[in-house]
Write a protein that binds this DNA or RNA. Structure first.
Lengths: 354, 354
DNA sequence: CTGAAAGCGCTAACAT
DNA sequence: ATGTTAGCGCTTTCAG
């Protein structure tokens, strides 16, 4: 690899002049024709600055690390990484991946990152959970993504779970549904509480009664399918809001068994917009998309803004390559920042084109 | 952060002595009591070596970069990353993520990585495709994962697609199926050709006839569902091998409509072992798992072995935290290395417990 | 406007 | 057995 020394020799100038030009600090310091010459030689030699040497001098590495549990195990997991990497890249940062992998001790991994002089950390979970950021990171810049601390220590972003329940339910109400069932999750999770609360809110706003018998909490497999079938048999709702797409599938199974048509006899909406389900089912399942990409994107922008100031999102220095949900700016003082989620309309709700 | 200089001052020795001790090269060079003193001071000061400074000197960074298209878009995408990071971590390497994100030009990202002095690269795809490794990487250590070059330039690993078709079909045959349909993919892909070939092979081995009318190639949505229903109506197979789990779902839909029971009236096997489908359907879908974690793990071990020699897998210096498929050693000379895939038995094939 | 030189933290060849 | 010293490639004063 060519170094500044090589360029200096070939352009017959000193390294410091080269440094000025390479770092765009030549205006008013270096004669334009010399600067031009240097740039040209740099191109010829395919010069790439040695990031290590630069960092050694500057004390900053322009790297961030993405720490997470179970990169792999959750649908759409990768989107958070994708969004974070996308923002980091646009802002000139490289991103390390550190997998916390369940219960394994990650202190040594974090130690390695600290040794590298990583400038900031994204601490992410793949399901919206309460978390503790490892104490080793207390002197570093940290942002929490898709998770929540119990007390406000680090800035963070998480989906607006109440909004999800509210918007999905309202979407069914607006489509004409009057008896809306909720197929919940049987674990005590932030998402479950929030979505149920939003469901109640939307019913209330519309003047519809809240009916306990329209609600179940299930896991997966045969018991879940049977519970869903029993619920539908007994209560005959005209709309179903499912905790997620996987649970919404049981409504399809029920419909197939009973010759009902989803999207006309019965409306269904899920959460996740999980491609493998939503674009495979017939008719395609309308679903609320969790803004994974957007949260990752926000997280990287946020931590980089903490490192070097500014608001990359407000200043349009980073542009998302994808977004269904609107990405909040980084300068808000909400804690945690809640991001509203978008409904991806397909064909499982009355009135949608099919 | 404390530096060697600080330690040297406090222990009243020179930095080079400290360096020797810190790097465990003190045997026979440094008096044990002095070494002990230095270690103690290092502990007191919570010394962590500055990885950057070290790399600047040694020319090696102990980092690799994972370059891939669309981290996010494919089911199980993250598993490859997970496996690679897991191996890298155990071998003392940190891993950068670089997302190629479709058609965007990644040369500048690779340039950045080259500037960092990244020691090696994993070039991965999330669907088994033919690829060209970017020419910029020609002087670097590169391993291709879940993809294939048309000519042998870099070592690589990919799923044994023929084996998948063969094993899945044989699994159905062994369970007693005699008329086995194949629901294929309508795109010309390595996976489609390979799995179909394996399907034919297994039939032949079992002395069963190959019947074109038992084969369809479909995409998703209503046309796919209708094609599957038509196939099953006309040919009444007793087993179905589906290109992937998503396509296998249409067989379930058909069964629900016609009151058939999957796993007794009709056996189905898919590919992907996609959690969201296989553990959600009733009965749970038996599926061939693509060894994403394993391929990522192998890829990191391979590229690190190219950097520093040895065979981390054979020498048990890296241990996978998960594997359904057996991970080949890194020293084989097969090109590309084909990794056999495991069948994850659940309840959708005759004779499985339910 | 341009160059010389110090030094970031560390390693390794060379002196003592 | 320990210390001295010369860089690795770069940025950043400070001199000219």
């Amino acid at each position: 690899m060519a170094t500044m020394k090589d360029i200096a020799a070939k352009a017959r100038v000193s390294v410091s002049t080269v440094s000025l030009v390479i770092n765009h600090r030549d205006k008013g310091h270096v004669k334009p024709e010399i600067a031009e010459k240097i740039r040209q030689v740099a191109d010829e030699l395919e010069y790439h600055p040695d990031a290590m040497a630069r960092s050694l001098r500057s004390g900053r590495t322009r790297t961030i690390a993405f720490i997470s549990d179970q990169v792999a195990t959750t649908p759409h997991a990768g989107e958070i990484i994708h969004g974070a990497q996308d923002a980091a890249r646009q802002l000139g940062y490289m991103m390390f991946i550190i997998d916390a992998d369940g219960e394994r001790n990650i202190d040594s991994d974090i130690g390695q990152a600290l040794g590298w002089g990583v400038d900031g950390y994204i601490y992410a979970k793949f399901a919206n959970r309460y978390v503790h950021v490892p104490p080793m990171l207390e002197d570093s810049q940290v942002v929490v993504v898709n998770a929540q601390e119990r007390t406000a220590i680090h800035p963070g972003i998480a989906p607006d779970e109440v909004g999800i329940g509210h918007d999905a339910t309202k979407y069914l109400i607006d489509a004409g549904c009057r008896r809306i069932a909720y197929i919940g999750c049987d674990e005590p999770a932030i998402a479950q509480f929030g979505r149920l609360q939003g469901y109640r809110q939307a019913l209330e706003e519309a003047g519809l009664p809240f009916d306990e018998s329209l609600i179940i909490r299930v896991s997966y497999g045969r018991p879940a399918l049977e519970a869903v079938c029993a619920l539908l048999d007994q209560t005959h709702p005209d709309g179903v809001f499912a905790f997620n797409d996987a649970r919404a599938v049981y409504v399809y199974d029920y419909a197939f068994k009973h010759g009902l048509t989803i999207g006309s006899d019965l409306s269904v909406i899920g959460v996740d917009n999980h491609e493998v389900i939503c674009d495979t089912t017939v008719p395609a399942l309308t679903s609320v998309e969790l803004p994974h990409y957007e949260m990752g994107f926000w997280g990287a922008c946020k931590v980089i803004s903490m490192i070097e100031g500014g608001d990359p999102i407000a200043e349009h220095r980073a542009t998302p390559s994808y977004h269904a949900a609107t990405i909040p700016t980084v300068s808000g003082d909400e804690w945690p920042t809640l991001i509203p989620c978008a409904i991806i309309a397909k064909q499982s709700v009355v009135g949608e084109v099919s």
